[in-house]
Computed example of a mutant assay.
Amino acid sequence: MKNVFALLVLLALLAGCSAGAAPAMYIQPAELNEEEEAVATLLGADTDQHLFDVVLDGTAKTARVNTYVLEDDKWELVTGGGGMTLKEGEQKGRMAFGFEDLRGEYREAVQFGKDFTAVKYGSSEEPDDPEGMGRTTSFLSNRTEIVYGQEIPLVIQINTTKNQVLSYDPEYFFQPEEYEKLGYEHVYALTVMFSQEPLS
């Protein structure tokens, strides 16, 4: 009887461990070592909020980054869709995004192993904003599982003249109606999607 009880306890513990196990593939805010932090500080780079660590299983072929604008309760594509080819077999990499206002220029860079790609999108013209327009940006703040073919929201940015701004977690990308209710003038999003399909 004791052996049966011990076996049940062991099975329960194993089930609990596997339920809380970290995902095999994920993206998360980058964890910089001391040397990397020193270089970032030297360059004046705000990398702690714009740099992400990526772990894949080696079968990914593309990464696609898209930006969207919220229009009438729906996300409308602004830039992206082209994608970047990833070298097969690579498992660990980093993605970096440089921007102030997603309505203007933004830069994306991807590094896996020794392969590095950087692209700049958008317009260098300053948006013609009314007086009192403020901006708030929320970034992915925790480890998020990567599922091939599914978009992962990394950034939500709000531009508004309203005095009070509620900034939701990027996960609210999947509930655009929550932003629409608040009546902000401009809401933008940046997402990434990994795929095992080659670029078309």
Rank of each mutant, 00 (worst) to 15 (best):
K2N: 09
N3K: 11
N3H: 10
A6K: 08
L10H: 09
L10A: 15
L10D: 09
L11G: 04
L13I: 00
L14K: 01
C17I: 15
C17D: 00
A19K: 02
G20I: 00
A21D: 04
A22G: 04
A22I: 02
P23F: 06
A24W: 02
M25G: 04
Y26Q: 02
I27K: 04
Q28P: 00
Q28I: 02
A30V: 08
E31M: 04
L32M: 07
E35T: 15
E35N: 10
E36N: 03
E37T: 08
Q49V: 08
Q49N: 13
H50I: 05
D53T: 11
V55T: 00
L56D: 06
L56G: 03
G58N: 05
A60C: 05
K61E: 14
T62P: 14
T62S: 15
T62V: 03
V65L: 08
V65A: 09
N66S: 11
V69E: 13
D73V: 05
W75E: 08
W75I: 04
G80C: 06
G81T: 13
G81D: 11
T85H: 09
K87M: 14
K87I: 00
E88L: 08
G89F: 09
G89H: 13
E90C: 08
K92N: 15
G93L: 11
R94S: 13
R94Q: 15
M95L: 14
M95A: 13
A96P: 00
A96T: 07
F97R: 10
G98N: 13
E100Q: 07
E100S: 08
D101T: 14
D101Q: 12
D101P: 01
R103G: 07
R103W: 02
E105Y: 05
Y106M: 06
R107N: 03
R107F: 10
A109F: 01
A109C: 07
A109M: 06
G113P: 12
K114I: 03
T117I: 10
V119T: 14
V119E: 09
K120G: 01
G122R: 01
D128R: 05
D129A: 08
E131A: 14
T137H: 01
F139P: 06
L140M: 02
S141Q: 08
S141G: 05
T144H: 04
T144Y: 01
E145F: 01
I146W: 03
I146P: 01
Y148K: 00
Q150Y: 11
P153N: 04
I156T: 10
Q157W: 02
Q157L: 02
I158R: 00
N159D: 12
T161I: 12
K162Y: 07
N163W: 05
Q164K: 14
V165W: 10
L166V: 15
P170T: 15
E171I: 10
Y172D: 09
P176W: 13
P176Y: 13
E180W: 06
L182P: 01
G183N: 12
H186W: 12
V187P: 00
V187G: 01
Y188D: 07
L190T: 11
V192P: 04
Q196P: 00
E197M: 12
L199Q: 08
S200I: 07
